[in-house]
Design a protein around this nucleic acid. Structure first.
Lengths: 182, 182
DNA sequence: AATATATGAATGAACG
DNA sequence: CGTTCATTCATATATT
């Protein structure tokens, strides 16, 4: 099936933006990255085990478990007026995306509970966060955000000519949205 | 693309830079790797802290630091390639401002299409850009009004609807414990 | 060059 | 569920 965010496609305004990697190639890359995901998780576990033997270093393990944001931001982040909204940690994001790839459907309430329990081991999280994340993920997947960010840096000639946009014989009324908005 | 500031920049002058992946595909990979960059960063911090108390493990810390300094990671930057962003042309900005003054409500999908088509004659642009522009324009106008005195004088309130700074009752916590679904 | 600001883009949460 | 809002993040531009 299509990989999330793998669909590169022209917005239809004459910008040539075709898919040049097959789904299979994308899948290969995804799996390779998944390997590193596993490695990183194992390393984290190792670190946790190590730091468990040193009370003075125990906090470090927690820091790794909860990567909220850069320490720079954390310094200016007052705990009292702290961040108002949940921010998934890197590990949480990995798990969530893996979950999403397995089944694009909205997880059941029971499933959300399980996911929340698992993710809570990698940072503060609630079921609402998981629920919203899946809702947003699914909603935004539909709108294929095709802002083909052109490398507008063809500094030489800027001979950016209008590419002939082949007008797709779009269904008059019932064309599906390829817009970020409706 | 934006004409302003684009001249003479270039991802690499004289470097043949043929794209074989779409920008969207690159973005997917960029984000994936960025996540592991963050994770590795945290791991390095842990190693450093640990090795600070255990000289015998110093070498290990160095090795990990070497991995973390992988050139692909741009030496700590969570990005492979700097993401370029759309920069509106002067003409485009003028048109957008005019549009916004006519009705500061969020344009309909069809309206966005029309605007995009018109603006594309004055530079590279996508519908997402237009959409984002209106979103940001409205949000920041609102914020500016809120930042002003609460005694808002509607001196220029012609077509603007009254911008009330009613703050929605949002949770002060970073997460909820109850799920908004049944 | 380093810092500050402006602003395009991303996204969690809320609304209907 | 689709859309919108509010906030944050990242980068282009301006300033020193």
């Amino acid at each position: 099936g299509g990989e999330a965010g793998a669909e590169g496609e022209g917005v239809g305004e004459g910008i040539l933006c075709v898919k040049v990697m097959t789904d299979e190639q994308m899948e290969v890359l995804r799996r390779q990255i998944a390997i590193y995901s596993t490695i990183c998780e194992k390393l984290v576990e190792m670190h946790k085990a190590i730091t468990a033997h040193h009370d003075s270093l125990a906090a470090l393990g927690m820091r790794v478990a909860g990567i909220y944001n850069d320490p720079l931001m954390a310094s200016g982040n007052n705990k009292i007026t702290g961040r108002q909204r949940w921010t998934p940690t890197a590990v949480q994001l990995q798990i969530l995306e893996a979950m999403f790839n397995q089944s694009n459907g909205m997880p059941s309430k029971q499933k959300i509970k399980e996911i929340t329990v698992e993710l809570s081991q990698h940072g503060q999280i609630s079921e609402s966060n998981v629920y919203n994340w899946f809702q947003n993920r699914r909603a935004r997947l539909k709108r294929k955000h095709v802002a083909s960010l052109p490398s507008n840096t063809e500094s030489e000639a800027e001979a950016y000519e209008e590419i002939v946009n082949e007008k797709k014989p779009k269904s008059n009324q019932s064309h599906h949205d390829d817009l970020p908005i409706n």
